[in-house]
Amino acid sequence: MPNTQHLEDLTVQVRRDILRMVHKVNSGHPGGSLGCAEFFVALYNEIMDRNEGFDMDGIGEDLFFLSNGHISPVYYSTLARAGYFPVDELNTFRLINSRLQGHPTTHEGLPGIRIASGSLGQGMSVAIGAAQAKKLNNDNHLVYSLHGDGELQEGQNWEAIMYASAKKIDNLISTVDLNGKQIDGATDDVLAMGDLKAKFEAFDWTVVEIKDGNNIAAILKGMAEAKSKTGQGKPVCVLLETMMGNGVDFMMHTHAWHGKAPNDEQLASALNQNPETLGDY
């Protein structure tokens, strides 16, 4: 068992960042952001092979594309705390003249971001393109992407899923955040997607399941397994089961916090449950 204490500490700090960012502007998406905090922390600090600094082309390093752009708070916090831009800049989230737009974009030149996302369903295609560019460049590094489960209702995903296996895009690890919730309620109630593992396997992907997607050790183990299955002629899908709102008791077991910010009292309670570890911005 690897010592994951520094990742645990970082996760708590990322949670605090997320909560404070959305509280300050009374908007944004804390639920999905909190659910993916462990995944982002593990991905950027342990799993991906990253170069110093930021170069758009990302030659000679692993790349990440966020398709469900509304969980920008967790993305921004992770990027800032990985050194892509000053942590203080998290103060500008969703404010006018900020590089930290409501949904991530390259438009303002924020280091770490390689594509705009927000309008759902587009990120897997982009990740596939980047993976094919890596193959053309004889670059052995991997491309990672993250997608919401509700997002898979967008048809473009299935064009991409079909293409990735047909064209043997085996340097791609696409993770689906299986939190079972979307804006209008449970995914099973809004538009049930059935057995996603069977669906991806039917499209000839390799599927790795991470049942406890809010446990760092489980994430590290599952992603290592996913990585070990790249380069074998098939794209790899990780089904990451997470809890929306994880780490804040009143935000869990509900879809209510998908796109709602806590008030002052709720923020105080949420922060109390997540004591400062590495210093607030």
């Binding site: 758009m56 082309d57 990302g58 030659i59 790349l63 594309f65 390689r114 594509i115 587009q122 990120g123 897997m124 295609s125 982009v126 990740a127 596939i128 393109g129 980047a130 993976a131 094919q132 560019a133 890596k134 053309l136 460049n137 670059d139 473009q156 064009e159 991409a160 293409y163």
Partner: peptide
């Protein structure tokens, strides 16, 4: 999918 893949190919 083609437009998205094209966008991704520019990264690289």
């Amino acid at each position: 999918n083609m437009m998205g893949i094209a966008a991704g190919l520019t990264v690289g």
